[in-house]
Nucleic acid binder design. Sequence first.
DNA 1: ATTTTTGCACTGACCAGTCAGTTCAAATCA
DNA 2: TGATTTGAACTGACTGGTCAGTGCAAAAAT
Lengths: 209, 209
Amino acid sequence: MESSSARAGGSTRREATRQKLYEAAVTLIAEQGFSATTVDEIAERAGVAKGTVYYNFASKSVLFEELLRHGVGLLTASLKEAAEQTEREGGGKVDALDAMVRAGLVFIDRYPAFTQLYVAELWRTNRAWQSTLMVVRQEAVAVVEGVLREGVAAGEFSDEIDVQLTAAALVGMVLVAALDWKSFQPERSLDDVHAALSRLLQGRVSGTV
Amino acid sequence: MESSSARAGGSTRREATRQKLYEAAVTLIAEQGFSATTVDEIAERAGVAKGTVYYNFASKSVLFEELLRHGVGLLTASLKEAAEQTEREGGGKVDALDAMVRAGLVFIDRYPAFTQLYVAELWRTNRAWQSTLMVVRQEAVAVVEGVLREGVAAGEFSDEIDVQLTAAALVGMVLVAALDWKSFQPERSLDDVHAALSRLLQGRVSGTV
DNA sequence: ATTTTTGCACTGACCAGTCAGTTCAAATCA
DNA sequence: TGATTTGAACTGACTGGTCAGTGCAAAAAT
Protein backbone atom coordinates (compact mmCIF):
# COMPACT_ATOMS: atom_id res chain seq x y z
CA MET A 1 0.00 0.00 0.00
CA GLU A 2 2.31 2.78 -1.17
CA SER A 3 -0.25 5.45 -1.80
CA SER A 4 1.55 8.69 -1.33
CA SER A 5 5.26 8.44 -0.64
CA ALA A 6 7.46 7.75 -3.64
CA ARG A 7 10.02 5.63 -1.77
CA ALA A 8 13.19 4.96 -3.68
CA GLY A 9 14.38 1.71 -2.11
CA GLY A 10 13.58 0.40 1.39
CA SER A 11 13.69 2.50 4.49
CA THR A 12 17.17 2.82 5.90
CA ARG A 13 15.88 3.28 9.41
CA ARG A 14 14.02 -0.01 9.36
CA GLU A 15 17.03 -1.86 8.01
CA ALA A 16 19.27 -0.36 10.68
CA THR A 17 16.86 -1.45 13.39
CA ARG A 18 16.72 -4.98 12.06
CA GLN A 19 20.49 -5.10 11.97
CA LYS A 20 20.68 -3.96 15.60
CA LEU A 21 18.19 -6.67 16.53
CA TYR A 22 20.20 -9.33 14.72
CA GLU A 23 23.33 -8.31 16.54
CA ALA A 24 21.63 -8.27 19.91
CA ALA A 25 19.90 -11.59 19.33
CA VAL A 26 22.94 -13.43 18.04
CA THR A 27 25.07 -12.92 21.11
CA LEU A 28 22.28 -13.52 23.59
CA ILE A 29 21.10 -16.70 21.89
CA ALA A 30 24.66 -17.96 21.49
CA GLU A 31 25.20 -17.54 25.20
CA GLN A 32 21.90 -18.78 26.54
CA GLY A 33 20.09 -20.61 23.80
CA PHE A 34 16.88 -19.66 22.03
CA SER A 35 14.35 -20.51 24.72
CA ALA A 36 16.32 -19.00 27.55
CA THR A 37 16.64 -15.70 25.74
CA THR A 38 13.70 -13.35 26.19
CA VAL A 39 12.41 -10.86 23.69
CA ASP A 40 12.72 -8.21 26.37
CA GLU A 41 16.43 -8.91 26.66
CA ILE A 42 16.91 -8.71 22.91
CA ALA A 43 15.05 -5.42 22.75
CA GLU A 44 16.98 -3.97 25.65
CA ARG A 45 20.36 -4.99 24.26
CA ALA A 46 19.41 -3.51 20.89
CA GLY A 47 18.33 -0.29 22.60
CA VAL A 48 14.82 -0.56 21.26
CA ALA A 49 11.34 -1.07 22.69
CA LYS A 50 9.80 -4.51 22.76
CA GLY A 51 7.07 -3.46 20.38
CA THR A 52 9.69 -2.64 17.79
CA VAL A 53 10.80 -6.24 17.71
CA TYR A 54 7.26 -7.23 16.80
CA TYR A 55 6.94 -4.39 14.35
CA ASN A 56 9.96 -5.77 12.49
CA PHE A 57 9.50 -9.51 12.92
CA ALA A 58 6.36 -11.60 13.09
CA SER A 59 7.58 -13.54 16.12
CA LYS A 60 10.62 -14.51 18.13
CA SER A 61 11.04 -17.63 15.98
CA VAL A 62 10.85 -15.67 12.77
CA LEU A 63 13.50 -13.27 13.99
CA PHE A 64 15.68 -16.26 14.72
CA GLU A 65 15.02 -17.92 11.37
CA GLU A 66 15.90 -14.81 9.45
CA LEU A 67 19.02 -14.41 11.53
CA LEU A 68 19.98 -17.97 10.63
CA ARG A 69 19.41 -17.40 6.94
CA HIS A 70 21.34 -14.16 7.01
CA GLY A 71 24.35 -15.68 8.78
CA VAL A 72 24.67 -18.87 6.77
CA GLY A 73 24.26 -16.82 3.61
CA LEU A 74 27.42 -14.95 4.53
CA LEU A 75 29.30 -18.18 5.22
CA THR A 76 28.23 -19.86 1.99
CA ALA A 77 29.21 -16.84 -0.07
CA SER A 78 32.56 -16.76 1.63
CA LEU A 79 33.26 -20.46 0.98
CA LYS A 80 32.25 -20.15 -2.67
CA GLU A 81 34.43 -17.11 -3.10
CA ALA A 82 37.42 -18.95 -1.61
CA ALA A 83 36.96 -21.94 -3.89
CA GLU A 84 36.52 -19.80 -7.00
CA GLN A 85 39.51 -17.67 -6.14
CA THR A 86 41.82 -20.71 -6.06
CA GLU A 87 40.24 -21.89 -9.27
CA ARG A 88 41.05 -18.58 -10.94
CA GLU A 89 44.61 -18.76 -9.69
CA GLY A 90 44.98 -22.20 -11.22
CA GLY A 91 45.39 -23.99 -7.90
CA GLY A 92 44.41 -27.62 -7.41
CA LYS A 93 41.53 -28.98 -5.37
CA VAL A 94 43.77 -29.46 -2.36
CA ASP A 95 44.46 -25.75 -2.48
CA ALA A 96 40.75 -25.07 -2.82
CA LEU A 97 40.05 -27.18 0.25
CA ASP A 98 42.76 -25.39 2.16
CA ALA A 99 41.40 -22.02 1.09
CA MET A 100 37.96 -23.04 2.30
CA VAL A 101 39.35 -24.10 5.64
CA ARG A 102 40.86 -20.66 5.94
CA ALA A 103 37.65 -18.98 4.84
CA GLY A 104 35.83 -20.97 7.51
CA LEU A 105 38.30 -19.85 10.14
CA VAL A 106 38.01 -16.23 9.04
CA PHE A 107 34.25 -16.44 9.26
CA ILE A 108 34.30 -17.96 12.73
CA ASP A 109 36.88 -15.41 13.80
CA ARG A 110 34.56 -12.63 12.75
CA TYR A 111 31.25 -14.14 13.84
CA PRO A 112 32.01 -16.46 16.75
CA ALA A 113 28.62 -16.00 18.36
CA PHE A 114 26.78 -16.93 15.21
CA THR A 115 28.89 -20.05 14.86
CA GLN A 116 28.17 -21.09 18.42
CA LEU A 117 24.48 -20.68 17.93
CA TYR A 118 24.52 -22.52 14.64
CA VAL A 119 26.31 -25.54 16.03
CA ALA A 120 24.05 -25.64 19.04
CA GLU A 121 20.90 -25.75 16.93
CA LEU A 122 22.06 -27.81 13.98
CA TRP A 123 21.24 -31.29 15.22
CA ARG A 124 18.13 -30.53 17.19
CA THR A 125 14.93 -32.07 15.97
CA ASN A 126 11.32 -31.02 16.34
CA ARG A 127 11.95 -27.33 16.33
CA ALA A 128 10.02 -24.69 14.43
CA TRP A 129 12.95 -23.60 12.29
CA GLN A 130 14.13 -27.14 11.56
CA SER A 131 13.42 -26.97 7.84
CA THR A 132 15.04 -23.58 7.41
CA LEU A 133 18.10 -24.96 9.12
CA MET A 134 18.29 -27.97 6.84
CA VAL A 135 18.05 -25.94 3.68
CA VAL A 136 20.66 -23.51 4.81
CA ARG A 137 22.98 -26.25 6.07
CA GLN A 138 22.79 -28.06 2.76
CA GLU A 139 23.77 -24.94 0.86
CA ALA A 140 26.95 -24.62 2.89
CA VAL A 141 27.95 -28.30 2.94
CA ALA A 142 27.23 -28.59 -0.79
CA VAL A 143 30.07 -26.19 -1.54
CA VAL A 144 32.54 -28.49 0.21
CA GLU A 145 31.03 -31.59 -1.37
CA GLY A 146 31.32 -29.95 -4.77
CA VAL A 147 35.03 -29.37 -4.42
CA LEU A 148 35.56 -32.92 -3.19
CA ARG A 149 33.64 -34.36 -6.12
CA GLU A 150 35.57 -32.27 -8.62
CA GLY A 151 38.78 -33.40 -6.97
CA VAL A 152 37.80 -37.03 -7.33
CA ALA A 153 36.83 -36.49 -10.97
CA ALA A 154 40.16 -34.81 -11.62
CA GLY A 155 41.98 -37.72 -10.03
CA GLU A 156 43.34 -35.47 -7.34
CA PHE A 157 41.52 -37.30 -4.56
CA SER A 158 41.11 -41.03 -4.14
CA ASP A 159 37.87 -42.20 -5.70
CA GLU A 160 37.32 -44.32 -2.63
CA ILE A 161 36.48 -41.37 -0.43
CA ASP A 162 32.94 -40.94 0.76
CA VAL A 163 32.13 -37.42 -0.37
CA GLN A 164 29.24 -36.69 1.94
CA LEU A 165 30.84 -38.08 5.06
CA THR A 166 34.22 -36.58 4.34
CA ALA A 167 32.63 -33.18 3.80
CA ALA A 168 30.85 -33.45 7.12
CA ALA A 169 34.06 -34.54 8.84
CA LEU A 170 36.00 -31.63 7.36
CA VAL A 171 33.36 -29.14 8.39
CA GLY A 172 33.38 -30.64 11.87
CA MET A 173 37.12 -30.48 12.09
CA VAL A 174 37.20 -26.78 11.31
CA LEU A 175 34.15 -25.97 13.37
CA VAL A 176 35.25 -27.66 16.56
CA ALA A 177 38.88 -26.65 16.28
CA ALA A 178 37.85 -23.05 15.73
CA LEU A 179 35.38 -22.99 18.60
CA ASP A 180 38.06 -24.50 20.80
CA TRP A 181 40.45 -21.83 19.63
CA LYS A 182 38.01 -19.00 20.40
CA SER A 183 36.93 -20.49 23.72
CA PHE A 184 40.18 -21.72 25.20
CA GLN A 185 43.15 -20.14 23.46
CA PRO A 186 41.86 -16.91 21.91
CA GLU A 187 45.33 -15.38 21.94
CA ARG A 188 46.53 -17.58 19.08
CA SER A 189 46.65 -16.20 15.56
CA LEU A 190 44.48 -17.34 12.71
CA ASP A 191 47.56 -18.35 10.73
CA ASP A 192 48.69 -20.53 13.56
CA VAL A 193 45.38 -22.37 13.75
CA HIS A 194 45.20 -22.63 10.00
CA ALA A 195 48.65 -24.19 9.88
CA ALA A 196 47.69 -26.81 12.46
CA LEU A 197 44.59 -27.78 10.51
CA SER A 198 46.43 -27.87 7.18
CA ARG A 199 48.91 -30.27 8.68
CA LEU A 200 46.16 -32.54 9.88
CA LEU A 201 44.31 -32.29 6.59
CA GLN A 202 47.31 -33.25 4.54
CA GLY A 203 48.21 -36.22 6.68
CA ARG A 204 51.41 -34.63 7.88
CA VAL A 205 50.71 -35.77 11.41
CA SER A 206 51.85 -39.33 11.56
CA GLY A 207 55.45 -39.75 10.41
CA THR A 208 58.11 -37.24 11.42
CA VAL A 209 57.82 -35.22 8.20
CA MET B 1 21.76 -53.70 34.32
CA GLU B 2 19.45 -55.81 36.43
CA SER B 3 20.72 -56.11 39.95
CA SER B 4 18.35 -58.12 42.06
CA SER B 5 18.39 -57.35 45.74
CA ALA B 6 19.57 -54.60 48.04
CA ARG B 7 22.95 -53.31 46.95
CA ALA B 8 25.54 -52.20 49.44
CA GLY B 9 25.69 -48.42 49.49
CA GLY B 10 22.61 -47.18 47.65
CA SER B 11 19.07 -48.27 47.20
CA THR B 12 18.50 -50.01 43.89
CA ARG B 13 15.00 -48.65 43.56
CA ARG B 14 16.18 -45.09 43.83
CA GLU B 15 18.90 -45.74 41.31
CA ALA B 16 16.39 -47.21 38.88
CA THR B 17 14.20 -44.14 39.16
CA ARG B 18 17.12 -41.85 38.57
CA GLN B 19 18.08 -43.87 35.51
CA LYS B 20 14.55 -43.58 34.12
CA LEU B 21 14.69 -39.83 34.67
CA TYR B 22 18.06 -39.55 32.92
CA GLU B 23 16.72 -41.41 29.93
CA ALA B 24 13.60 -39.31 29.72
CA ALA B 25 15.49 -36.06 30.16
CA VAL B 26 18.21 -36.85 27.65
CA THR B 27 15.92 -37.34 24.68
CA LEU B 28 13.65 -34.43 25.53
CA ILE B 29 16.52 -32.00 26.09
CA ALA B 30 18.33 -33.22 22.98
CA GLU B 31 15.25 -32.45 20.93
CA GLN B 32 14.11 -29.23 22.49
CA GLY B 33 16.92 -27.85 24.57
CA PHE B 34 17.10 -27.42 28.33
CA SER B 35 14.86 -24.39 28.76
CA ALA B 36 12.17 -25.60 26.42
CA THR B 37 11.87 -28.89 28.28
CA THR B 38 9.57 -28.86 31.30
CA VAL B 39 9.91 -30.90 34.45
CA ASP B 40 6.36 -32.12 33.92
CA GLU B 41 7.34 -33.52 30.54
CA ILE B 42 10.37 -35.29 31.96
CA ALA B 43 8.30 -36.82 34.75
CA GLU B 44 5.60 -37.94 32.37
CA ARG B 45 8.02 -39.50 29.90
CA ALA B 46 9.75 -41.31 32.76
CA GLY B 47 6.40 -42.55 34.01
CA VAL B 48 6.90 -40.96 37.38
CA ALA B 49 5.21 -38.28 39.47
CA LYS B 50 6.59 -34.77 39.44
CA GLY B 51 7.26 -34.94 43.16
CA THR B 52 9.58 -37.87 42.52
CA VAL B 53 11.79 -35.73 40.34
CA TYR B 54 12.28 -33.36 43.24
CA TYR B 55 12.69 -36.19 45.71
CA ASN B 56 15.63 -37.43 43.60
CA PHE B 57 17.17 -34.20 42.36
CA ALA B 58 17.44 -30.82 44.02
CA SER B 59 16.37 -28.97 40.89
CA LYS B 60 15.99 -29.20 37.14
CA SER B 61 19.52 -27.84 36.66
CA VAL B 62 20.99 -30.35 39.05
CA LEU B 63 19.27 -33.18 37.22
CA PHE B 64 20.81 -31.91 34.03
CA GLU B 65 24.26 -31.49 35.54
CA GLU B 66 24.29 -35.00 36.88
CA LEU B 67 23.09 -36.29 33.54
CA LEU B 68 25.99 -34.50 31.91
CA ARG B 69 28.49 -35.96 34.35
CA HIS B 70 27.04 -39.42 33.98
CA GLY B 71 27.12 -39.36 30.18
CA VAL B 72 30.59 -37.93 29.72
CA GLY B 73 31.82 -40.38 32.34
CA LEU B 74 30.72 -43.23 30.10
CA LEU B 75 32.44 -41.67 27.08
CA THR B 76 35.70 -41.02 28.89
CA ALA B 77 35.80 -44.57 30.24
CA SER B 78 35.17 -45.92 26.79
CA LEU B 79 37.95 -43.85 25.20
CA LYS B 80 40.42 -44.83 27.91
CA GLU B 81 39.50 -48.47 27.51
CA ALA B 82 40.04 -48.29 23.75
CA ALA B 83 43.45 -46.69 24.12
CA GLU B 84 44.57 -49.15 26.79
CA GLN B 85 43.34 -52.10 24.80
CA THR B 86 45.54 -51.16 21.81
CA GLU B 87 48.39 -50.58 24.23
CA ARG B 88 47.99 -54.09 25.62
CA GLU B 89 47.94 -55.52 22.12
CA GLY B 90 51.18 -53.77 21.34
CA GLY B 91 49.69 -51.45 18.74
CA GLY B 92 51.16 -48.05 17.95
CA LYS B 93 49.67 -44.65 18.73
CA VAL B 94 48.10 -44.46 15.29
CA ASP B 95 46.22 -47.62 16.16
CA ALA B 96 45.24 -46.15 19.49
CA LEU B 97 43.87 -43.05 17.75
CA ASP B 98 41.96 -45.20 15.34
CA ALA B 99 40.57 -47.31 18.17
CA MET B 100 39.42 -44.14 19.91
CA VAL B 101 37.71 -42.92 16.77
CA ARG B 102 35.85 -46.19 16.70
CA ALA B 103 35.02 -45.99 20.39
CA GLY B 104 33.66 -42.51 19.77
CA LEU B 105 31.49 -43.78 16.95
CA VAL B 106 30.21 -46.67 19.04
CA PHE B 107 29.32 -44.26 21.83
CA ILE B 108 27.47 -41.91 19.52
CA ASP B 109 25.74 -44.85 17.91
CA ARG B 110 24.48 -45.96 21.29
CA TYR B 111 23.74 -42.57 22.80
CA PRO B 112 22.91 -40.22 19.94
CA ALA B 113 20.63 -38.05 22.03
CA PHE B 114 23.25 -37.47 24.66
CA THR B 115 25.75 -36.51 22.00
CA GLN B 116 23.35 -34.01 20.48
CA LEU B 117 22.69 -32.42 23.80
CA TYR B 118 26.36 -32.29 24.71
CA VAL B 119 27.35 -30.57 21.48
CA ALA B 120 24.52 -28.10 21.84
CA GLU B 121 25.64 -27.04 25.29
CA LEU B 122 29.39 -27.28 25.00
CA TRP B 123 30.22 -23.81 23.74
CA ARG B 124 27.57 -21.88 25.57
CA THR B 125 28.67 -19.37 28.13
CA ASN B 126 26.96 -17.92 31.17
CA ARG B 127 24.97 -21.00 32.04
CA ALA B 128 24.54 -22.51 35.47
CA TRP B 129 26.27 -25.78 34.62
CA GLN B 130 29.12 -24.12 32.72
CA SER B 131 31.82 -25.19 35.16
CA THR B 132 30.59 -28.77 35.34
CA LEU B 133 30.71 -28.88 31.57
CA MET B 134 34.26 -27.60 31.43
CA VAL B 135 35.56 -30.13 33.91
CA VAL B 136 33.85 -32.97 32.18
CA ARG B 137 34.93 -31.85 28.71
CA GLN B 138 38.53 -31.62 29.83
CA GLU B 139 38.48 -35.17 31.13
CA ALA B 140 37.40 -36.48 27.74
CA VAL B 141 39.68 -34.33 25.58
CA ALA B 142 42.62 -35.09 27.87
CA VAL B 143 42.47 -38.74 26.88
CA VAL B 144 42.97 -37.82 23.22
CA GLU B 145 45.63 -35.27 24.06
CA GLY B 146 47.45 -37.88 26.11
CA VAL B 147 47.68 -40.31 23.22
CA LEU B 148 48.86 -37.55 20.90
CA ARG B 149 51.55 -36.47 23.35
CA GLU B 150 52.76 -40.02 23.84
CA GLY B 151 52.83 -40.43 20.08
CA VAL B 152 55.00 -37.35 19.69
CA ALA B 153 57.32 -38.52 22.48
CA ALA B 154 57.63 -41.91 20.79
CA GLY B 155 58.47 -40.23 17.49
CA GLU B 156 55.36 -41.65 15.90
CA PHE B 157 53.80 -38.25 15.29
CA SER B 158 55.52 -35.12 14.05
CA ASP B 159 56.67 -32.99 16.96
CA GLU B 160 55.36 -29.99 15.09
CA ILE B 161 51.74 -30.86 15.72
CA ASP B 162 49.74 -28.72 18.08
CA VAL B 163 48.44 -31.26 20.55
CA GLN B 164 45.53 -29.28 21.95
CA LEU B 165 44.23 -28.03 18.62
CA THR B 166 44.72 -31.33 16.89
CA ALA B 167 42.83 -33.11 19.64
CA ALA B 168 39.96 -30.68 19.29
CA ALA B 169 39.96 -31.08 15.52
CA LEU B 170 39.89 -34.87 15.81
CA VAL B 171 37.05 -34.79 18.28
CA GLY B 172 35.18 -32.43 15.97
CA MET B 173 35.77 -34.63 12.99
CA VAL B 174 34.28 -37.66 14.68
CA LEU B 175 31.48 -35.74 16.35
CA VAL B 176 30.19 -33.95 13.29
CA ALA B 177 30.66 -36.89 10.95
CA ALA B 178 28.79 -39.13 13.35
CA LEU B 179 25.94 -36.71 13.87
CA ASP B 180 25.68 -36.33 10.13
CA TRP B 181 25.61 -40.09 9.82
CA LYS B 182 22.83 -40.47 12.41
CA SER B 183 20.82 -37.56 11.06
CA PHE B 184 21.11 -37.98 7.33
CA GLN B 185 22.26 -41.48 6.44
CA PRO B 186 21.33 -43.69 9.41
CA GLU B 187 21.22 -46.80 7.23
CA ARG B 188 25.01 -46.90 6.89
CA SER B 189 27.02 -49.27 9.03
CA LEU B 190 29.42 -48.22 11.73
CA ASP B 191 32.28 -49.97 9.92
CA ASP B 192 31.55 -47.98 6.83
CA VAL B 193 31.68 -44.68 8.66
CA HIS B 194 34.76 -45.75 10.57
CA ALA B 195 36.54 -46.64 7.34
CA ALA B 196 35.79 -43.23 5.85
CA LEU B 197 37.16 -41.46 8.90
CA SER B 198 40.25 -43.66 9.07
CA ARG B 199 41.03 -42.78 5.50
CA LEU B 200 40.75 -39.08 6.23
CA LEU B 201 42.78 -39.42 9.41
CA GLN B 202 45.63 -41.19 7.74
CA GLY B 203 45.87 -38.75 4.88
CA ARG B 204 44.73 -41.27 2.33
CA VAL B 205 42.45 -38.73 0.72
CA SER B 206 44.69 -36.69 -1.52
CA GLY B 207 46.67 -38.86 -3.86
CA THR B 208 45.05 -41.85 -5.54
CA VAL B 209 46.21 -44.36 -2.95
C1' DA C 1 9.63 -49.30 60.27
C1' DT C 2 11.66 -46.72 57.01
C1' DT C 3 12.34 -45.14 52.49
C1' DT C 4 10.40 -43.92 48.37
C1' DT C 5 6.73 -42.69 45.42
C1' DT C 6 2.26 -40.67 44.34
C1' DG C 7 -1.20 -37.22 43.30
C1' DC C 8 -2.56 -32.86 43.19
C1' DA C 9 -3.53 -28.27 44.54
C1' DC C 10 -1.13 -24.03 44.89
C1' DT C 11 2.08 -19.94 44.32
C1' DG C 12 4.70 -16.49 42.38
C1' DA C 13 7.69 -15.24 38.87
C1' DC C 14 8.30 -14.79 34.23
C1' DC C 15 7.34 -14.13 29.37
C1' DA C 16 5.43 -13.99 24.33
C1' DG C 17 2.64 -11.32 22.10
C1' DT C 18 -0.86 -7.21 21.80
C1' DC C 19 -2.49 -2.64 21.15
C1' DA C 20 -3.70 2.16 21.90
C1' DG C 21 -1.09 5.92 21.73
C1' DT C 22 3.30 8.88 20.40
C1' DT C 23 7.02 10.63 17.44
C1' DC C 24 8.91 12.82 13.59
C1' DA C 25 10.54 13.40 8.88
C1' DA C 26 8.91 13.90 4.56
C1' DA C 27 5.08 15.24 1.58
C1' DT C 28 1.57 18.41 0.55
C1' DC C 29 -0.59 22.65 0.88
C1' DA C 30 -1.40 27.80 0.96
C1' DT D 1 8.34 30.42 2.90
C1' DG D 2 6.02 28.40 6.85
C1' DA D 3 1.87 25.56 8.31
C1' DT D 4 -0.37 21.26 8.19
C1' DT D 5 -1.04 16.46 7.20
C1' DT D 6 0.29 11.79 6.66
C1' DG D 7 1.87 7.34 7.92
C1' DA D 8 5.72 4.38 8.86
C1' DA D 9 8.23 3.45 12.85
C1' DC D 10 8.34 3.05 17.46
C1' DT D 11 6.82 2.77 22.44
C1' DG D 12 5.76 0.40 26.86
C1' DA D 13 2.03 -0.94 29.93
C1' DC D 14 -0.84 -4.77 29.95
C1' DT D 15 -2.84 -9.62 29.33
C1' DG D 16 -3.28 -14.40 29.37
C1' DG D 17 -0.82 -18.21 29.90
C1' DT D 18 3.06 -21.18 31.39
C1' DC D 19 6.14 -23.34 34.44
C1' DA D 20 9.61 -24.30 38.34
C1' DG D 21 9.23 -25.42 42.60
C1' DT D 22 6.43 -26.40 47.17
C1' DG D 23 3.64 -28.93 50.67
C1' DC D 24 1.68 -32.74 52.34
C1' DA D 25 -1.17 -36.77 53.36
C1' DA D 26 -1.77 -41.23 51.79
C1' DA D 27 -0.01 -45.39 49.46
C1' DA D 28 3.43 -48.62 48.09
C1' DA D 29 7.67 -50.89 48.26
C1' DT D 30 11.53 -52.90 50.76
